[in-house]
Design a protein around this nucleic acid. Structure first.
Length: 491
RNA sequence: CGGAAUGUAGCUCAGCCUGGUAGAGUGCUUGCUUCGGGAGCAAGAGGCCCAGGGUUCGAAUCCCUGCAUUCCGACCA
C-alpha cells in the first residue's frame, strides 16, 4: 500500500492520468491542479476561480480591444427575454426551445406544508426565458434605433452570461451557464453583412493565433451545422491533442431572418423602406477549455504567454532564514523591473519548499519560472526556465538584463507554441478520397480528422451511417479548399 | 432523456461478497532535520460512511426508494 502510494508520488508526470491514458480525466485533473474552476451546487454551472477567471479577463482585454477597433460599441441588454420575442423566429425556436430556462413567477411564498416555492398568485402573464443568446432582444432595440440608412451600420457587442440547459455539461466546454461576448451588427446591404461576418471571423482567427496560440481551420459550416436562422455560419475549428475538433468561435451571416422577425427597417437613399441585414458573432469561456486541451501536457497546463494570468512566477529559494530579507527584496525589485518591461509576475511568498514552489508553477503552466536565491544574489544573476522547454531550457541572466531576456523568451515561447500547435494540427488532418477510407480511418481509431471532397458525402446515406456509427460531424468547408469538407469527432 | 459506473476524512480510495466500536495514503497543524526537478522522522487535528425507509439484538455492509456526480450516447457554443 505504502509502496503503491510512493510510486504515484514519484511518478514522472504531475498529472494522473496522462493524456494518453485518459484524456477527459486528464483534462479535469488539470483544471483541478491549476485551480481554474470547480463544480458548484447547481448541475452544469461551474465556479470559475481566480486563476481561471484571469484568463477570461485577458480575453476581455485583448479581444475586447480588437472588437472596439472594428468600430463596434459595447452595450448591455437584459438577461430576461419575453417569450413572445423568441417566438417570432420559427427556426430559432427549434434551435433553442429544448434548452431554455423559463421564468414563470416573480415571488416566493411558504405553502400550507411549510415549503418555500413559487407563489401561485405571482405567475407572470407572459413567461420570460433566460437568454440563450440575444438576437431577439437586441433585434427589438435595433427595430427602435434604426430608421434611416444613416443609422447603419449599427455595431453592438455585449459581454454577458447566457444559459442553455445542457443535457451533458462539461466544465468550460459545455456548461449550462457560460460567459461570452456576443456581437450584433446591422447593415444596409447583403454584401456588407456577409463581409462583416467574414471580417469578424478574421478578428477571431487573429486573436486565437496571436494571443491564444491556437491555430484552426477557417471556413464555413455545412447547412446542417448552421446556427438556427442563419444563412451562413462561419467558424474556426481547432483540433485538440486527442484529435477531436472544437469550434473556437462562431460568426453568422443572419441575412434578413432576424430583421424580418424584429422588423428592422430603414428608409434607403432611394426613398424606399428596406429590411436590414444582420450578423452575430461570439466567443465563449469554452475557449478556455480549448486552451487547456490545446496546450496542456502531462505535468499540467502550459499557458500561452499572452493569455497567462501572470507570465512569470518569481520563486524565492531560501535555505537560510537570515537570507530572507535580501532575497525578498530582490524578488520585489525583479517584479517591479518586469512590470516596467510590460511583464506580469507573481512572487511565490508561501513557505513551501523550493521544489514544491516549482511544481506549483509547473502545474499552473506559468510561462516562465524565475529563481532567486542566495546563489543568485551572490553572483548578481538569476536563472529562468520556460515552461514549455522544461529544465533543459534553463537560462541564466544578469539581474539587470533579465527583464529584456525574459521578454524575448516570452515572445519566442508564443511563436514556438503556435508553430507546435500548427504542426500537430497539420499532422491530425488527413486527406482522403472515398467513403471507404473515411470508415477505415475512424474504424482504426486514428486520431484527428479527415478532409474529403464535399461532393462525396453530400446527401450520401452511407456517409450518414458512418457519421452516426463513429459520432462524426462535418466541421467546416475550409476557405482555402471550399469544395472539401473537414470531418471529425468533436466537443 | 437512454446506457454504465460511483457516492466512506479536504483529496484519492480500501472496507461491503461473509452485518459486530471507522481504515490507509495524501493533504492539513506542530516540532526537529532537510531544501535549486516532488525530502525524512515524530506527534496531532479531522468522518451523520449521500438521503429516506425496510430487514436485524445490531447496518458503511443486506433490501427498497430517492438524490447527486462522472463516463458513453442523443442535443448543442
Amino acid at each position: 500500500m505504502a509502496d503503491a502510494a510512493k510510486t504515484v508520488k514519484n511518478a514522472k508526470t504531475a498529472i494522473t492520468p496522462t493524456r494518453a491514458e485518459n484524456f477527459p480525466e486528464w483534462y479535469q485533473q488539470v483544471i483541478k491542479a491549476t485551480d481554474m474552476a470547480e463544480n458548484s451546487a447547481v448541475r452544469g454551472c461551474y465556479i470559475i476561480k481566480p486563476y481561471g477567471f484571469a484568463i477570461w479577463e485577458n480575453v476581455q482585454k485583448h479581444l475586447g480591444q480588437m472588437i472596439k477597433d472594428e468600430d463596434v460599441q459595447n452595450a448591455y441588454f437584459p438577461l430576461l427575454i419575453p417569450l413572445s420575442y423568441i417566438a417570432k423566429e420559427a427556426k430559432h425556436i427549434d434551435g433553442f426551445a429544448k434548452e431554455c430556462a423559463v421564468v414563470t413567477h416573480h415571488r416566493l411564498s411558504v405553502n400550507d406544508k411549510g415549503e418555500l416555492g413559487p407563489d401561485k398568485d405571482s405567475q407572470l402573464t407572459e413567461p420570460m426565458i433566460i437568454r440563450p443568446t440575444s438576437e431577439t432582444i437586441i433585434g427589438e432595440s435595433m427595430h427602435n434605433w434604426v430608421q434611416s440608412y444613416r443609422d447603419l451600420p449599427l455595431k453592438l457587442n455585449q459581454w454577458c452570461n447566457v444559459m442553455r440547459w445542457e443535457m451533458r455539461p462539461r466544465i468550460f466546454l459545455r456548461t449550462a451557464e457560460f460567459l461570452w461576448q456576443e456581437g450584433h451588427n446591422a447593415f444596409a446591404t447583403a454584401d456588407e453583412a456577409d463581409a462583416d461576418a467574414r471580417r469578424m471571423l478574421e478578428v477571431y482567427r487573429t486573436f486565437l493565433e496571436d494571443y491564444m496560440a491556437i491555430p484552426g481551420i477557417v471556413g464555413v459550416k455545412t447547412p446542417d451545422e448552421r446556427f438556427p436562422g442563419a444563412i451562413e455560419t462561419y467558424t474556426v475549428e481547432a483540433f485538440m491533442q486527442d484529435g477531436k475538433a472544437l469550434q473556437a468561435c462562431t460568426s453568422h451571416n443572419l441575412g434578413q431572418t432576424f430583421a424580418k422577425s424584429a422588423d428592422i427597417k430603414f428608409l434607403d437613399k432611394d426613398g424606399t423602406q428596406k429590411l436590414a441585414w444582420t450578423t452575430s458573432w461570439g466567443m465563449s469561456t469554452r475557449t478556455i477549455g480549448g486552451l487547456i486541451m490545446m496546450h496542456g501536457d502531462d505535468d499540467g497546463m502550459i499557458m500561452p504567454p499572452r493569455m497567462a494570468p501572470y507570465q512569470v512566477a518569481i520563486l524565492p529559494f531560501i535555505k537560510d532564514d537570515a537570507d530572507t530579507p535580501a532575497i525578498m527584496k530582490a524578488c520585489d525589485e525583479m517584479r517591479a523591473a518586469l512590470k516596467s518591461a510590460g511583464i506580469t509576475a507573481q512572487i511565490d511568498k508561501t513557505e513551501a519548499r523550493s521544489s514544491d514552489k516549482m511544481w506549483a508553477a509547473i502545474k499552473k503552466g506559468v510561462p516562465v519560472r524565475l529563481e532567486i536565491g542566495a546563489r543568485e544574489l551572490a553572483e548578481g544573476k538569476v536563472s529562468f526556465t520556460r515552461r514549455d522547454l522544461g529544465r533543459d531550457g534553463k537560462q541564466v541572466a544578469d539581474i539587470a538584463a533579465a527583464p529584456d531576456m525574459v521578454k524575448a523568451s516570452l515572445e519566442q515561447m508564443h511563436t514556438d507554441m503556435l508553430a507546435g500547435a500548427r504542426a500537430r494540427m497539420d499532422a491530425q488532418i488527413h486527406r482522403i478520397n472515398s467513403l471507404a477510407d473515411l470508415r477505415a480511418f475512424f474504424a482504426a481509431g486514428t486520431m484527428g480528422g479527415v478532409k474529403i471532397d464535399y461532393a462525396l458525402i453530400k446527401g450520401s446515406a452511407e456517409y450518414e451511417n458512418i457519421a452516426k456509427e463513429f459520432s462524426l460531424s462535418t466541421r467546416c468547408l475550409p476557405f482555402d479548399a471550399p469544395d472539401q469538407v473537414i470531418i471529425a469527432k468533436s466537443y
